[in-house]
Write a protein that binds this DNA or RNA. Structure first.
Lengths: 195, 195
DNA sequence: ACCGTAACACTACCCGTTAGTGTTTCGGAA
DNA sequence: TTCCGAAACACTAACGGGTAGTGTTACGGT
């Protein structure tokens, strides 16, 4: 039961990558909705069932590496220095994530996402999941001890900030503006909160 | 080209209602996912294509009358008295909507919705649509003139309030708590705003 | 009395996704 | 070294949501 680092793992990862690459290539070239699963499987030279053993759905082919997202936000909460205030920490993390998504290199992918209702829906549910995870992290922090409702609310607001800023004309300015509102909302939940 | 109030209209509405009734009956009886479109069509004694000419999707069969939602929220913004502040008006409307959804009579339907991923996803997109409509109404109000980002943000927060309060243990208290946070966020966008 | 149109039906199909059933290939224990 | 279990992979067949294309009725307005 040692760490499994054999050839099989590498082969599996390679297959997964091959599928993801084939999918992204076809999607960007001809549009997400115009490419069928069977085509992607054929391009990657695997069976359809194999494709679905690596990815839970067609949409998941596009959001391949967005597991980080959840972790980065919760780490911004749980991994901050003692007495470091919550909101600025989240602000920094959201700022970084927004910049990452609005970089020129990511533009074609996001254009594709916004062009497909199915992908938009999928991303919406992802956001909600992230909000719930974040809410759990905030509620569990003994240095904050908000009411459950307040914790969940702040988590939603933070995810909203990410979503809105990404679409804004000036993402950086939008992050600033929205986080001023979030800061005020947070202060309203407990006036004697550490700044 | 007078107002069309003929027999055809009545027949169409009757067919639509018959489909919706058959669908809700089957869904509540056996579960949303366990009932196929073809069964609903058979129960309503119409063809599948007819069903889809009345409803855009299977999910739309459940959210039949939620066109009001959008209108009620925007009316709470556009139809308020001169100098009446924005946030309390929205608070009242959200309060009413939450009470409507958490009423005992609506419980089985909402239990069904929360039991089906497909329905939850659908409702999420509906909420986003509502947020965008509400944002447009807020941004267009000359008495408020917020920045576009602030308007969109407040709209999201209000929809979040509805969503979170509906799921909270004490919905009324949750509405109060969240709207205090929203009020603070709104004040932060323009300190000299009329209370 | 007639024409245009909208509701409705039917067939056949596409697409995402899954179940069921093997077959290969590798890691680790005997 | 040998063999076993597990996991990756393949293939067929199907299911359920949804649509295109092609009529056919039935009604409202002229």
């Amino acid at each position: 039961m040692t760490v499994p680092t054999g050839r099989r793992e590498r082969k599996k990862a390679a297959t997964r990558q091959k599928i993801a690459d084939a999918a992204l290539g076809l999607f960007l070239e001809r549009g997400y909705d115009a490419v069928g699963i069977r085509e992607v499987a054929a391009e990657a030279d695997v069976a359809v069932t194999t494709l679905f053993s690596h990815f839970a759905s067609k949409e998941a082919l596009v959001f391949e590496q967005d597991e980080d997202f959840e972790q980065r936000l919760t780490c911004a909460v749980t991994g901050r220095a003692p007495n470091e205030p919550l909101i600025p920490a989240l602000r920094g993390e959201v700022q970084a994530l927004v910049r990452h998504c609005t970089a020129d290199s990511a533009a074609p992918v996001w254009r594709m996402i916004e062009a497909s209702p199915a992908l938009r829906k999928y991303e919406e549910s992802m956001r909600l999941r992230h909000a719930e995870t974040l809410a759990a992290a905030i509620t569990a922090d003994p240095a904050l001890s908000p009411t459950p409702t307040a914790g969940r609310t702040i988590a939603r607001f933070v995810i909203d900030a990410y979503s809105l800023a990404r679409e804004a004309a000036d993402p950086d300015a939008a992050v600033d503006e929205i986080f001023q509102m979030i800061e005020a909302a947070w202060q309203a939940t407990g006036p004697s909160r550490p700044a």
